[in-house]
Each structure stands twice: as structure tokens, then as C-alpha cells.
């Protein structure tokens, strides 16, 4: 009798399985959706990090666009040049040229430059420190130096240096914008690597009010705007705004008379990396101070 029950149960389950199998087989035949096989090929070649730097929802979304010819393979800023080339070859299209962009920090006020008014001993994180007395630095706009961006960076492209400033490694940065979102002070901006004139300050104050907070603060003297090509640099809210589209050509001369070093001509990384001598930065600063003393 027991064996009979088992047989009935096995029969019912087997029958159901067979029935559903047939339904699925029929469904897969009649409800089949043709998908472009090239999408899979492209997706396979993309890095798969889903970082969003291309502006799409993820690698699959970009692969769809690339396969249809709506986007150039080079739109992916993360993939190696060889991978981009492979995608272009596979699809028989031009790889396209994409300007290299990197994250730039609008602050140069590290531990050595910014005035310290208190010691922050709370939870180590920029966002937490920003909520508690604004961290230890006197400046309400500058880098808090507690590495929220370093943690947020998926590509290990940000390293905090000995001065407590994030160094963006140009080779590794994919311009995905995670650091832009992570920074509670909104100090990062994604800029083309070719844009070398960088304003490294966000203090909306002028003259001594600004320099009291930080030795590299912009004191809104406006010399950079005078020395640059017409229209390239405009003073707005006590800060220079560089607009490459509005004027040009850009030249390092615009930064020569800056009394504090708040605007700099940057090629490569903005700050010396961890363990590196800060000689270059010092020398540049000393040069500007002697220059302003002469003038």
C-alpha cells in the first residue's frame, strides 16, 4: 500500500513536470525574442564595472547603444585602449575619439595650509565631520581630509597624501563621478585633462577674510582674470571661474601673479602623492611669494 502511494505521488509529480516542460518548450518557441547577438559580444569586451561614467545605466546599456551604432566604443572611459579597439573591430566601426577627463579638486588647503581651529575626534568620515562643528579646519568650504572620496572610488584612483589631500591618479581615474557625489563639500569636478587652469579654492570671501582661513585661499584679487586671454577667466562671487568655451587660449601666465597659489596650471596629478616630497609645491609657493613681495 505504501509503495502504491509513492507511485501515485511520483506519477503526479512526473506528469506535472512533463506538462510544464511541454508548455515551456512551446512558449520558448512562440514567444522567442530576437536579440542582437552583437550586444553580448560588446558586453563581453566592456569592463563590467557598471560605474556609470559613460552616462548609461551600466555596461549592458552601453553595449546595446554601441551595437546599434548610437554610441562610439570609446564612450567607455574605463576600458583599456586594446578593448575599445577590439569592440571597434568586432563591429567594423570607428573607435571614435574620447577626450580624457579626470576628477579635479577645487581645494588645496591641506593640513599644512588650512588654519586649524579645533581637533575633530569623532567618527572618521567627511560627512560625519561636516555635521559636527564643520570638522577641525577653520574653513567652511574646504577639503575635510577624512577620505570619503578615497573610500568611494571604485578604481583606487584616489589616494590621500601626507598633507591630508586626495590625490587623483590621472591614469586610473575614469571620470565616473563617484567622488563628486561622495564629497559633502562638493569640491570635485570632472574636467577634461587638457584643461590645465584649475581654481583650487571655493572660499567666497575676499582679501584677509579669506587668507586668514588658509594660506592658499583665493583672496579675490582678480589678477588671474586680468592676465588671461579675454573672457577666459571671470570673477564671480569672489572666485575666478574658468570657462574654456568662452575664451582662450589658456596659458600658464594667468597663474603667475596669483599671490596665494589658489589658481594653478596643472599637468598630471594636482598634489604630490603619498610619501613624495612636497618640494615642488613649496618651491612654486615660495616663487609666488617673492614675486608678490617684489611687486
Amino acid at each position: 500500500m505504501n509503495l502504491g502511494n509513492v507511485a501515485i505521488a511520483a506519477g503526479i509529480m512526473g506528469g506535472l513536470g512533463l506538462l510544464f516542460g511541454v508548455v515551456l518548450a512551446v512558449a520558448s518557441r512562440f514567444l522567442h525574442v530576437e536579440e542582437d547577438p552583437r550586444i553580448d559580444i560588446v558586453e563581453e569586451l566592456l569592463p563590467g564595472s557598471n560605474c556609470g561614467a559613460c552616462g548609461e545605466a551600466g555596461c549592458r546599456a552601453l553595449a546595446e547603444k554601441v551595437a546599434l551604432g548610437d554610441a562610439a566604443p570609446s564612450k567607455c572611459t574605463v576600458a583599456a585602449a586594446a578593448a575599445i579597439e577590439a569592440i571597434a573591430d568586432a563591429l567594423g566601426v570607428d573607435a571614435g575619439a574620447q577626450e580624457k577627463r579626470v576628477a579635479r579638486l577645487h581645494c588645496a588647503g591641506g593640513r599644512a595650509q588650512a588654519t586649524q581651529i579645533a581637533e575633530y575626534e569623532g567618527y572618521e568620515g567627511c560627512r560625519a565631520a561636516a555635521l559636527v562643528g564643520g570638522g577641525g579646519k577653520g574653513c567652511s568650504w574646504g577639503c575635510l581630509g577624512l577620505a570619503d572620496c578615497e573610500v568611494a572610488c571604485t578604481f583606487d584612483a584616489i589616494v590621500m597624501n601626507d598633507n591630508g589631500l586626495p590625490v587623483v591618479l590621472v591614469d586610473k581615474c575614469t571620470a565616473c563621478g563617484d567622488c563628486v557625489d561622495a564629497c559633502p563639500r562638493d569640491l570635485f569636478e570632472i574636467l577634461p585633462l587638457s584643461h590645465s587652469l584649475i581654481v583650487q579654492c571655493k572660499v567666497p570671501l575676499a582679501s584677509e577674510a579669506a587668507t586668514a582661513l588658509c594660506s592658499v585661499a583665493c583672496d579675490a584679487c582678480g589678477r588671474c582674470a586680468q592676465d588671461a586671454a579675454p573672457g577666459l577667466i571671470v570673477m564671480k562671487d569672489n572666485l575666478p571661474v574658468v570657462d574654456y568655451a568662452a575664451g582662450g587660449p589658456a596659458a600658464p601666465e594667468a597663474t603667475f601673479r596669483c599671490p596665494t597659489g589658489a589658481i594653478r596650471w596643472v599637468e598630471g596629478a594636482q598634489f604630490p602623492g603619498r610619501g613624495q616630497a612636497r618640494g615642488g609645491e613649496r618651491a612654486a609657493q615660495d616663487a609666488t611669494t617673492t614675486e608678490s613681495a617684489d611687486g
Binding site: G122, R127, A130, L131, D181, P184
Partner: peptide, 20 residues
Amino acid sequence: LPIVQLIRAAKAAVRTRKKD
């Protein structure tokens, strides 16, 4: 554990995300 400190920072992040 800095529980409330973590939550405060997260709340601030959630607020800015909503604004964005």
C-alpha cells in the same frame, strides 16, 4: 559603535541624493 554618528552621516547623504 558610533551608531548614531553613522546614521546621521547617512541621513545627510540621503538628503543630498534626494535633492540631486
